[in-house]
Simulated scan of single mutants.
Amino acid sequence: MPKMKTHRTSAKRFKITGSGKVSRRQANRHHGNERMSEKRLRRLKGDELVSKADEKRVKRMLGI
């Protein structure tokens, strides 16, 4: 059976945590930020975990 290839754009977007969960960046932080409130920008600052419903699909794209 051939090796599974990594979906390269997914590999750039997702990271695996030490406990095996998948983390992602938050959306709406790229442009148009001057019209957003500081509170909203602070809330969008950190990484977020991928939902349980999508975690299996993302791990398959990463070749895990």
Rank of each mutant, 00 (worst) to 15 (best):
K15H: 11
R40S: 07
K39L: 13
L62P: 01
M4Y: 05
H30D: 14
R13H: 12
S51F: 01
K39I: 08
I64D: 02
R42Q: 14
R13A: 07
I64K: 09
H7W: 04
M61W: 01
A11Y: 03
M36Y: 10
L49K: 11
K15Q: 12
R35F: 12
T6Y: 06
E38Q: 07
R25L: 07
L44K: 14
R57Q: 10
T9R: 08
K15D: 11
D47M: 08
M36E: 08
L44I: 14
E34Y: 13
R8Y: 10
H30V: 13
N33V: 07
H31P: 00
D47H: 09
D54K: 15
T6D: 09
A27Y: 14
M4E: 06
R43W: 15
S10K: 11
A53I: 07
L41T: 10
K12R: 15
R42M: 12
E55G: 00
G32P: 09
E34M: 11
G63S: 11
T17S: 08
R29S: 12
E48M: 09
M4S: 07
A27K: 14
M61F: 01
K12V: 14
I64F: 03
R24F: 01
D54P: 00
R24V: 01
L49I: 04
E34T: 09
H31S: 06
K45I: 03
F14S: 04
E38P: 05
E55P: 01
R57E: 07
E48H: 11
R29M: 13
K12W: 06
M36F: 05
F14N: 03
M1L: 12
K3G: 10
I64P: 00
M4I: 02
S37T: 07
G46V: 06
K39N: 12
H31Q: 10
I64A: 08
S19L: 01
T9L: 13
S37D: 08
S23I: 02
K15G: 09
K52M: 02
K15R: 09
R25E: 10
K21C: 04
K3S: 12
R25Q: 10
I64V: 05
Q26E: 11
G46M: 05
G20I: 05
K52L: 08
V50T: 13
M4G: 09
K3E: 14
G46C: 05
K39E: 15
E55L: 01
H30P: 00
D54M: 15
R8K: 08
P2K: 08
K56F: 00
K12I: 14
S10Y: 14
S19P: 00
D47A: 12
V50H: 13
R60I: 06
R57D: 01
